[in-house]
Amino acid sequence: MIYLFHGEEEFGKSERIAALKAKLGDLAEMNAVTLDGRGLSREALLHHCDVPPFLGDYRLVVVEDLLTRLEKKGPDGKQPASSRDFLIWLADYLPTMPESTLLVFNESKKISARNPVLKAIQKLGERGEVALFETPKLKRGELARWVAQHARGKGVRLKPGVAEALATFIGPNLRIIDSELEKLALYAGDRPITQDDVRLMCPYAKEASIFDMVDALGNRRTPVAFRLLAQMRNQGAHPLYLLTMIVRQYRILIQVKDYMNQGMNLNDIASTLKLHPYPTEKAMRQARHYTPDQLQRIYDRLLDTDVAIKTGKLEANLALDMLVVELARVQ
């Protein structure tokens, strides 16, 4: 059986590969291999695919980003002849591969529909599968539907609004959503997970509240900022924790604003800051509310508040209240 799993959504692909590996049973470690396609030769691929399984029925061979590499164009804008030859050879080889081999092409990017290997796998009928894995889009409600469906598959019950909350707080990082569902299910036990559980147990919910408060400050909506601050206090958040998270968010905004002024795009900024594109995009929208000078003055004021609290000059909650009022008035 030959599989082509392609697209940027890694979690779904890893689950499929884990399920294939589970079919190998106790001999999985002996009969499974992962190959780096970025430097893989024909001879090495042929060797691993033609090796018979050890005391089992199947051998799993996972090849990562081979087709992505072979689709790349050279400096002249054309696909190298060696890459074309490799693809043609591979398309001819696949129908002759031993049926005891489960071959998976795990590609981090979407493969062209014209790719000869993709076409060859599609022609194999029941012996081949091509699956595109794309991250669900938050704005179309796809992500919340994915959360609800994934929870049902795990036997986890959700109260209304929980799927939407997790989708909003975490964004399109399916692996983290899966991890948070596991944690919330353990906490809730036999009962359904509620939105209060999410706010209590999910750190991303607290970060989202901080983001919303900073967003309210940027839009000069002081009452909304105070309401969000009160909510986080009622949930038991320590004043110094809240201040630390506010400082972190404004530090990100300063960096994002600087990179935006340099002409960097979303993906470049996310990669440089080692952030997921989802919170990076939100930060870019937020940074537009401020000038670089305003952000620097805010950051200096945050540091002054930190010193005032730690030296006992101001009581922590009073210091935060004064800070919120001042930040909403920054000109």
Rank of each mutant, 00 (worst) to 15 (best):
Y3D: 08
L4C: 01
L4D: 03
L4E: 05
F5E: 09
H6K: 11
H6N: 10
E8V: 13
E10A: 15
F11R: 09
G12D: 05
G12V: 05
K13R: 14
S14I: 02
E15R: 15
E15M: 14
E15W: 07
R16Y: 08
I17P: 10
A18Q: 09
A19E: 13
A19N: 12
L20W: 07
K21E: 05
K21Y: 04
A22P: 06
K23G: 14
G25N: 13
D26K: 14
L27K: 15
L27R: 15
A28L: 09
A28D: 11
E29Q: 15
N31P: 14
A32I: 04
A32Q: 12
T34M: 13
L35E: 11
D36E: 14
G37N: 02
G37S: 06
G39H: 11
G39Q: 14
L40S: 09
L40D: 04
S41W: 08
R42L: 09
E43S: 09
E43T: 02
E43I: 07
A44E: 15
A44R: 09
L46W: 09
H47W: 05
H48N: 13
C49K: 06
P53K: 12
P53L: 12
L55H: 07
L55V: 13
L55S: 14
G56D: 03
D57N: 10
L60Y: 06
L60W: 03
V61K: 08
V61S: 04
V62P: 08
V63Y: 06
E64F: 02
D65K: 00
D65S: 12
L66I: 02
L66V: 08
L66S: 02
L67V: 01
T68Y: 00
R69Y: 03
R69H: 03
L70M: 04
L70R: 04
L70N: 01
L70V: 04
E71G: 03
K72H: 04
P75Q: 04
P75I: 00
G77W: 00
Q79M: 07
S82D: 04
F86A: 01
F86L: 03
L87N: 00
L90C: 04
A91M: 06
D92T: 00
Y93L: 01
Y93I: 01
L94H: 00
L94K: 02
L94S: 00
T96H: 05
E99M: 02
S100K: 07
S100H: 09
S100Y: 11
T101K: 02
L102E: 11
L102H: 10
L102P: 09
L102G: 08
V104F: 10
V104K: 06
V104I: 12
V104R: 07
F105W: 07
N106S: 14
N106I: 11
S108P: 08
S108Y: 10
K109M: 11
K109N: 15
K110I: 15
I111Q: 05
S112D: 03
R114H: 07
N115H: 15
V117K: 01
K119R: 13
A120C: 08
A120N: 02
Q122D: 14
Q122W: 08
K123S: 15
